[in-house]
Amino acid sequence: MQVSYRSVSLAAIVTIIVVTVVTLVGELSAPVMKLLTYPTGHHWITKNFLSVIVFLVTLAIASGGSSAPEKSPVESGATNLLWVGATTVVCSAVLLGFFIIDVLKG
């Protein structure tokens, strides 16, 4: 297993997107919220565990292949870390926007 900038970035991006999507679907669907509550007794604790599991599984899968010698930041995949930041900001904004709309709708 060879952890690289690319694999760790991918793991973080996938985790953040999964948590965001699961949160939005859970808020919009009572059966999904019930499903999220079932394993731990609270949907938020389930999402806690889910985020760690998704990160580790994605990292393991993405780190499975061999990696070429790393030279420039583009070749090494270091620029992928930029996408982790961008995904975090966008997903945070999506969640904030969703809950603002939810409050405004009453």
Partner: peptide, 27 residues
């Protein structure tokens, strides 16, 4: 409805981004 709901979910991102930065730092 707004602040806690947003806080509890964005808080889940923080350790993941921190872990990503830490692994990259070691790399």
């Amino acid at each position: 409805n707004l602040v806690m709901e947003t806080k509890e979910h964005i808080a889940l991102f923080i350790p993941i981004v921190a872990l990503c930065a830490t692994i990259a730092l070691f790399h």
